[in-house]
């Protein structure tokens, strides 16, 4: 069933359209930067963006930082919200279940499919951004194989590559909470849009609460709290605290919502 889910993912035109759209904004940013040569001041704008003018190979990180707060969650929520509700809408869900494919297996395969989609999207965004950065913004101006870490010391190329891969992984993990929530809503509603918007509303609420000091006590539990912590991977030494908390928090969200999805879907009357 998992293999079937992955095949469906890859053969679906919508998957590739979504990923193409995800790439559009960072590419536009790169082109604008290259033309105008006006970067944001260090410390302002999306992370890393001020650094890419001197080093195009850092652009994947800037691209992830651009895409992460808004575009990725929307894409993930739409994809995950569609997972079960979409099959219910087309009527294919009932035929899967009478094949038979166990209901738990359907859920697990869907979650694996969503994770694959997230990883694929993040990886493609990073890869495209690397190429775009190199072509549009040019390579490193000094040929010394070092990058200045955010905290001031230098990183070797292999360190940068390693840490970029880690960052890609972290961003993908950060999306799991949204994915699990949207998947749960997708088992509740037969409308994919309702499920996607429900998950997005939750994220918006989380973002709003994060800016509100009165909600201080809630901050550590908000799903978006640690999203940009991947920047910490480029400090020297790496600042693990927020990264670890971010992963743990996503883990809790996945457990809760996947459990809820399982409890709901396992005994649900399939009348679609």
């Amino acid at each position: 069933m998992i293999a079937v889910e992955l095949r469906k993912l890859l053969r679906r035109p919508r998957t590739w359209w979504t990923i193409a759209l995800l790439n559009a904004l960072p590419t536009l940013v790169a082109v604008l930067l290259a033309i105008t040569d006006v970067g944001p001041q260090p410390g302002e704008g999306p992370a890393f963006l001020s650094a890419v003018l001197t080093d195009g190979t850092l652009f994947p990180l800037a691209a992830l930082a651009i895409v992460l707060p808004l575009f990725m969650p929307v894409a993930v929520a739409l994809y995950a919200g569609e997972a079960v509700a979409g099959e219910a809408q087309t009527g294919t869900l009932r035929y899967l279940l009478v094949r038979p494919v166990g209901r738990t297996r359907v859920l697990v395969a869907k979650l694996v499919g969503i994770m694959a989609f997230v990883l694929l999207a993040v990886a493609v965004v990073a890869a495209v951004a690397y190429v775009v950065g190199l072509l549009v913004l040019g390579g490193r101006e000094d040929t010394a194989a070092t990058v200045t870490a955010i905290s001031g010391s230098t990183l070797t190329t292999s360190e940068v590559v390693q840490r970029t891969l880690l960052a890609v992984l972290y961003v993908a993990l950060s999306m799991l909470g949204v994915a699990a929530l949207a998947l749960f809503l997708s088992t509740v509603s037969d409308s994919s849009l309702a499920a996607a918007f429900g998950a997005l509303a939750f994220l918006v609420a989380s973002t709003v609460l994060l800016t509100l000091d009165a909600a201080q006590a809630l901050h550590p539990y908000l799903p978006t709290r640690y999203w940009l912590a991947f920047v910490d991977l480029f400090r020297d030494p790496i600042l693990w605290r927020d990264l670890v908390r971010g992963v743990a928090l996503q883990g809790v969200y996945v457990l809760v919502f996947l459990g809820a999805a399982w409890a709901n879907f396992g005994t649900k009357d399939i009348t679609s």
Binding site: T90, G91, Y95
Partner: peptide, 15 residues
Amino acid sequence: LPQVGTLVEGPAAYG
């Protein structure tokens, strides 16, 4: 169920 073939409330397929 593997020994049962079904057509429930119309066919469904990925377009």
